[in-house]
Design a protein around this nucleic acid. Structure first.
Length: 514
RNA sequence: GCAGCCGUAGCUCAGUUGGUUAGAGCACCAGAUUGUGGAUCUGGGGGUCCCCCGUUCGAGCCGGGGCGGCUGUACCA
């Protein structure tokens, strides 16, 4: 077979392999998240990767493009199936299917892979993991407030310091109300409302100026590409900019330095100030008042629990456009890191969620309120790497003790040593390759073995084994220049009676791993 | 999806106006050393110069198309 005929070994675009270090670190992180969710009283549940396509929501495959956004295929009875693209829609299906058997409110968590068929990029994959917690059957915004506080606790538990993150809370009703307020109500304006929400969602990336252009005629980016705007008039844009730049509503010239602005001092908490500011600026709209009332309740609960420094009302949060009906939240990391080119990069969102009162109700004749939060596991993981959280940067696992094969006819004896070590609870293995001693040493080195066990004919005759401490040996090697000296010294190596094998290996391990 | 930039060894990259058999460093393998990781020295394996079509006596280099990557933008449940 010529080389050209050989299969090219490569993972599909947007799919990634994960090595042992990443697996172990991810497992530790997931365990911490799980612990946090369980502490709040949530219980685990797992649903399959595949659902009937219509159960997942609006992303139905059409004839021309059955795989737009979602991986779909037809069952042998012609029913469309899809790989799940989040964990929320499958949970809604699960709750609806088992409604009578579940306690209400039903509180559950689950971690799992989800799939999206879209263009992958750095940090964006077509298969990635989410870790969700949801409360189904609770209409009270106390459920939303609780989830926000749990999100804060969870981030701290995995090693994000307080102050390095913020849980932002908004309410879709507030956004809807403000749009109604400026005359964007009604079914005929749905398209415009969508454009407005998309524009506001880009605030942290494009800034006030960019958003303002997107609300008006449109925006031209640096590549010369033009994005059509919402086409609002100046008064509408002004209102929305005031809303988006909500801090300005409660700023006044500082007493000490009138050229600077400061937050209006008030006896109420910062979260309450936001609510009050919006209330006075956009009075007289029912939807908005409802939303503000919910936000006020959430603010009260958050203040009372002492979380107001971590969970902040932020009217510019938009989140997904599809199914959120009330409070929405976003977990954002606030520190900046420098990428490999030395440029500062804000890390941004590592999770989010909100209230989706309509989702379970699609399967039932009665409406079922629900709210939930989702952590982007991979994003959070790379963030933890960057802040060097101990949970992901813990000491690397030592490899197994390797028993070298010096004489091929003695394999049974070597295997016995391996078994003895394993029975003593020590990770150990027999060298299973076919190369000579030097290669075996290199192998052990690559496996991060703490030590190797050597028994050639000399040792065997004396009933002994040679233990070589590879970690100590590597240190000693640094001081040795010539190969002759290196060979003669045989650093960090000692002989013990075969019966002392376990004891001697334990002794070496205890030198390096307390 | 749209726009810009880029595709030469596993990795990082040289490669003259278009001219013989395409190079370097790192990595990998082996020997120097019957049985010892590192360092050093010596040797070795590894290439569809992204693919196809064209121009040419001759293409890694020029032209067209495609594919892939990066960046921005759009979409993002």
């Amino acid at each position: 077979m010529s080389k050209a005929d050989k299969l090219k070994a490569r993972a599909p675009r947007g799919f990634a392999d994960r090595g042992p270090a990443e697996l172990a670190a991810t497992e530790r992180m997931l365990a911490a998240i799980r612990e946090s969710y369980e502490l709040y009283g949530f219980e685990g549940v797992e649903t399959p990767f595949v659902e009937y396509t219509d159960a997942l929501g609006k992303f139905l495959p059409d004839q021309d493009r059955p795989n737009e956004g979602v991986f779909s295929f037809q069952d042998d009875d012609e029913q469309w199936l899809s790989l799940r693209y989040d964990l929320t829609a499958p949970l809604a299906r699960y709750v609806a299917e088992n409604f009578d058997a579940l306690p209400k409110p039903y509180r559950s968590y689950r971690a799992g892979w989800v799939f999206r068929n879209e263009k992958p990029g750095p940090g964006r994959f077509r298969q990635f993991m989410q870790f969700d917690a949801d409360t189904v059957g609770a209409a009270s915004v106390a459920a939303d407030a609780e989830i926000c506080m749990m999100a804060a606790d969870t981030l701290e538990k995995v090693g994000i310091k307080r102050g390095d993150y913020v849980i932002k809370v908004n309410n879709r009703k507030v956004l809807d109300g403000v749009m109604e307020h400026i005359g964007l109500g009604g079914d005929d304006k749905a398209g415009q409302r969508l454009t407005v929400l998309r524009a506001i969602d880009k605030l942290d990336r494009l800034g006030l100026d960019g958003v303002s252009h997107l609300l008006g005629a449109g925006r031209k980016d640096e590549s010369g590409d033009f994005t059509k705007g919402a086409g609002l008039n100046d008064a509408q844009i002004l209102s929305l900019m005031q809303y988006v730049n909500w801090q300005s509503i409660r700023l006044q010239p500082a007493a000490s330095d009138p050229s600077k602005m400061e937050v209006v001092p008030d006896h109420i908490s910062p979260n309450m100030q936001v609510v009050e500011a919006l209330r006075s600026a956009f009075a007289g709209n029912q939807t908005l008042d409802d939303g503000l009332e919910e936000l006020e309740t959430i603010a009260t609960l958050i203040d009372a629990a002492g979380y107001s420094d971590r969970v902040r009302i932020d009217p510019s949060v938009v989140r997904g456009l599809e199914y959120y009906t009330g409070p929405v939240y976003e977990a954002e990391l606030t520190f900046t890191v420098t990428d490999e080119d030395g440029r500062p990069v804000r890390f941004g969102s590592v999770g989010g969620g909100g209230r989706y009162d309509g989702l379970v109700g699609r399967f039932r004749s009665e409406p079922v309120p629900a709210t939930g939060f989702s952590i982007g596991v991979s994003r959070l993981f790379s963030a933890l790497r960057m802040v060097k959280s101990p949970i992901v940067s813990g000491a690397e696992q030592p490899g197994p003790v390797v028993v070298l094969v010096m004489d091929k006819d003695q394999i049974a004896a070597y295997q016995r040593m391996v078994s003895t070590l394993r029975q003593a609870g020590i990770r150990a293995e027999l060298y299973l390759g076919s190369s000579g001693m030097k290669a075996q040493m290199k192998y052990a080195d690559r496996r991060q073995s703490p030590c190797v066990v050597i028994q050639g004919s000399n040792e065997r005759e004396r009933g002994e084994v040679e233990i070589k401490d590879l970690i100590e040996g590597a240190k000693a090697a640094a001081a040795i220049a010539s190969n002759e000296e290196w060979k003669a010294a045989r650093p960090a190596q000692f002989s013990v009676s075969e019966s002392k094998l376990v004891e001697a290996v334990r002794e070496v391990l205890s030198r390096h791993f307390a």
